[in-house]
């Protein structure tokens, strides 16, 4: 059975991707999935050679055929998403239009249009790719600028990574997740074997960690916490860890504040592939995660939900 380790953070910029890239290197034979689909960065470290590309189509989008529009405005009256634009004042042939950035593709406007002037074509929202890297296959994606349906794209990327792992006998999928707690995060965490929540000792990191741990509990996924840059504020790091323990969440380890982490990124290397001191901390983190996986009955978070 393939295990799936998902790295998330709540707050953005806590070091998720740097940690995930190092875990991918340390794992050696995992399948890696970059599920931060609207700001994917893992490929900048893992240097993938793309093997397959797939168009990502999701949902529909209303388009008005101006010649068929009589200008009655029923579409505008019924759209709940503010996506229908009225004709410009003084336009010779007044026709309504749809703002693609606001349209949810529900189809209400097309249904109400008395002249059938509104079409609902499928929309292309980006692409997803399967690549080879120095630490195994990478499934990644690129959401089109200002596009939606990121949760669906995450589901595709995750599903493909699991399929590849099962087909190639790899025991582990490592997922680099998105920030926040909404749609793409929910799509990244449900049904995962384990979450690694990377946080930082700041009031924002602490606040957002609490929300992510509530989300993990809501969906019944065991979580472990890692405080990155812990020495930036040791007292707050202590408090964050104490709070995690009180919630019954395991501590996977601490990573020190280390300017070499950025230098590794600039060199397009994972932190553990350089001499950066923080790499030692990430190796210890990996050892903790791997031993928890090897002994699932003593695993993280005996959550009595």
């Amino acid at each position: 059975m393939t295990r799936e380790l998902v790295v998330i953070s709540g707050k953005g910029g806590t070091g998720k991707t740097s940690v995930a890239a190092s875990l991918a290197v340390l794992a050696g034979n995992a399948v890696v999935a970059d599920c931060d689909v609207d700001a994917a960065d893992l490929h900048l470290v893992l240097a993938p050679v793309v093997r397959r590309r797939h168009e990502f189509r999701a949902g529909r989008q209303a388009v008005v055929r101006p010649a068929a529009c009589r200008g009655c405005g029923l579409c505008l009256a019924h759209c709940r998403f503010g996506a229908v634009l009225p004709p410009a004042a003084g336009a010779p042939a007044p026709a309504y239009a749809v703002d693609p950035l606001a349209c949810e593709g529900c189809g209400v406007c097309a249904r109400t249009c008395p002249t059938g002037a509104i079409d609902l074509p499928e929309r292309v929202c980006g692409e997803w790719m399967v690549s080879d890297t120095r630490c195994g296959p990478l499934v990644h994606a690129r959401l089109a600028a200002a596009a939606e349906n990121s949760g669906k794209l995450v589901s595709i990327v995750r599903g493909e990574a699991r399929r590849i792992a099962a087909a190639s006998g790899r025991p582990l999928v490592i997922v680099d997740g998105p920030p926040g707690i909404g749609c793409p995060v929910i799509a990244s965490v449900t049904g995962a074997s384990q979450l690694l929540v990377v946080t930082e000792p700041t009031v924002s990191g602490e606040h957002d960690l609490a929300r992510v741990l509530s989300l993990a509990r809501h969906f019944g996924v065991p979580a472990a916490v890692c405080v990155n840059k812990w020495d930036l504020n040791p007292d707050l790091s202590e408090r964050i860890e104490a709070d995690a323990r009180a919630r019954g969440v395991a501590l996977a380890g601490r990573v020190r504040y280390d300017r070499e982490v950025t230098r590794a990124q600039i060199a397009a290397r994972a932190v553990v592939e350089t001499g950066a001191p923080a790499g030692e901390d990430i190796r210890r983190l990996w050892a903790v995660l791997a031993s928890a996986a090897a002994a699932p009955d003593q695993s993280f978070q005996k959550d009595e939900v």
Partner: peptide, 11 residues
């Protein structure tokens, strides 16, 4: 089965 036997999944 008398009910669902797994949680809802997104993926």
């Amino acid at each position: 089965a008398r009910g669902a036997d797994v949680e809802g999944h997104w993926a």
